[in-house]
Amino acid sequence: MAEDATIADTQRELKEDFELLEDPRDRIEYIIDLGKRLAPLDERHKTEGNRVRGCQSQVWMVAELDEQAGRIHLAADSDAIIVKGLIALLLRLYDGRTAEEILANPPTVLEEIGLKNFLTPGRSNGLYSMINRIRQLAGIYAGVTPEARAAAG
């Protein structure tokens, strides 16, 4: 993400990327490639408390607040490569943002690029579970207290 790029800018970039891929198979391959390049989550974070509920696959997500910058750093992983690619898309949108930015900018680009059209219903539900988890974590950090930090993992 460019240092000054907004979530709206990043959503436009993602839309442009996917518009170049007309064939649904190419879009899936692109997502899989993103998943292959996703940095793995440290094993110590793969706990039940960090698991995202509602996903067919195992998905773990953690957030940490950079208090000086006021930005949330997200990390996530999955045992399924396509889900890792979906995680990579979400991290591109939301990693390094403020809680307020995350909460004010739903990922409308995911509908615009037609992800629902080529994901199974289970994967689609999992994607929205991950989005809800990101928004939940942002909500926790929007009112940062020591208790909120502990709840965020």
Rank of each mutant, 00 (worst) to 15 (best):
A151G: 03
D79N: 15
A80R: 01
L41V: 04
L119V: 05
L65D: 06
L119K: 07
R44I: 14
K36L: 09
D79C: 11
A99C: 15
T98P: 10
D26M: 10
A148P: 12
A148H: 14
L119T: 01
A8H: 08
D33Y: 01
M1F: 09
G54V: 08
I28C: 03
F18S: 03
D33L: 06
K46H: 04
Q56K: 11
E16H: 10
I72C: 07
G126R: 02
Y141G: 03
E101K: 00
T108A: 13
D66C: 04
L34G: 11
E67D: 15
R51Y: 02
L65I: 13
D42C: 10
E16V: 11
D33Q: 14
L89T: 01
R51S: 13
T47P: 01
A39R: 14
R123C: 01
N105H: 15
L20W: 05
R97I: 12
D17W: 09
R97N: 12
L137I: 12
G70F: 02
A5E: 14
I131F: 04
H73K: 15
S129Q: 09
L90E: 02
L103Y: 00
L93T: 06
K36T: 03
L38E: 00
N125D: 03
L119N: 03
G85H: 07
L93F: 11
G139W: 10
W60S: 03
D23V: 09
I28E: 02
G126S: 08
I140S: 00
T120Q: 13
M130R: 03
S57Y: 05
L110E: 05
D66Q: 00
